[in-house]
Amino acid sequence: MTTGQKKPGPTEGRSLPRARSQDEGIIEVAWCYYQEGMNQNEIAERLGFSRATVVNYLSEARRRDYVRITLDHTIFRNQELARRLVETFGLKDAIVVPSSSDGPERSLDRVTRVVADWLPSLLEPGDRLGVAWGETIYRVAEAAPRLTLNELTVVQLVGSRPAAMGFAAETSSATLARRYGAHCINLHVPLVLSDRELVDRLKQEPVIREQLEAVATCNKTIFACGTCGEDSHVVHTGLLDRADIDTFARQGAVGVICGRLIDGEGRGLDREIESRMIGVTLDQMRGKDMGLLVGSGPERARPMLAAIRGGYATHVATCSDTAMNILKLALDPC
């Protein structure tokens, strides 16, 4: 080097690394963490990020579904409580996840997530999957993986009804269809009307008649059995008011399937409103190749038992506490 010549800086003579976009950073952080097994500090050092950025990028990768962590659902199907449910009630299959020590809400989250992973394995080309409504089914749909399930049709089982937090029937069916790359048949009518004659006329409309035919011919369903208390989904949506639900509970109602009340043996209650509802009937919910009943929580054991006894469920997914309560109620209903 000659005198007076500028000494090269540390980056001169070699190219600088190209600046990463945020999307590239998220993908690279996810790869290092999940594929290479690096910890967050190691990733931060390698990529020149702060540890907080690494944490945020990992969270964003999960949110965007770049990364999906699953457990083999067979371990939950082979769990002792799952086998006892199958043997006791003659089910085709059951999944029981460990209840969360953080309470019923977290347990329900575990159940809906394992169902989201289990459901695709229960579906075959040509199936028509009837999808019910409510928070539980909504959460399954939101957790569903993005797949392509060939020749699958997803069908909305009940007419539309305003519901909080997006738990409307059409939201769940449309979301599942989109996640599975499936054809979707929504039911473009209100769930309940004030005029029985209007109901009859609507059912005769060609488009509605075709949609109702799809409802009637579903060979598989996924549903929850709601409660008959003040916090019931049918109360929150205004399908029944608190006085009505209390009256029907005194008459023996213990559960709700697709807006229709059932007693402890799964029999429907004869109500005037039934003739003004548009959606799947209780008779149409029975005898399916698969009726996947999903539920979790201390108040769900009795409704779920009623749904099982009524012949609506061939498959059950729940948490360990709820499974034990269902079995206990079956042996000692008092």
Results as ranks from 00 to 15, higher is better:
E151W: 02
G266F: 00
D200T: 12
G226E: 00
G291D: 02
G297V: 04
R110F: 13
L123E: 02
I245A: 03
E274S: 13
L327H: 01
S100N: 14
R309T: 02
E28R: 12
L202F: 13
H73M: 05
E60N: 06
G4L: 10
V192K: 10
R77E: 02
R62I: 06
F167R: 11
E151Q: 13
T322G: 01
R161W: 04
D270C: 07
A249H: 14
I185W: 06
L261V: 03
V207D: 11
V234N: 03
D195E: 10
R62Q: 13
E36R: 15
H315F: 02
K92R: 14
C258H: 02
I278F: 00
E45S: 14
L331R: 15
A243I: 12
W133H: 06
P120F: 02
G134E: 06
A61N: 09
A163K: 01
V235I: 14
G226A: 04
I185R: 03
G37P: 07
I69R: 13
N56Q: 14
R64P: 06
R276M: 10
N219G: 14
R196P: 06
T3L: 13
V254P: 00
C334E: 11
E24I: 05
T175G: 06
A214Q: 09
T11Q: 11
R242V: 13
N150T: 09
D244S: 15
C228Q: 00
I69A: 09
V235E: 01
P303C: 04
T322E: 01
A224L: 04
G181D: 11
G9M: 08
G4Y: 09
S121W: 03
Q22S: 13
R179L: 04
G264L: 05
Q211S: 08
I27E: 14
A214N: 08
T70A: 12
P333Q: 10
G25I: 03
H315I: 01
T3W: 08
A177C: 05
L331S: 15
I137S: 05
V215L: 06
Q251R: 15
L187H: 00
T227Y: 00
V155R: 04
A30I: 07
I26K: 05
Y33F: 14
A132F: 07
G297S: 05
K220E: 10
L292V: 01
C319R: 06
M290A: 10
E230R: 14
P10L: 13
Q22M: 12
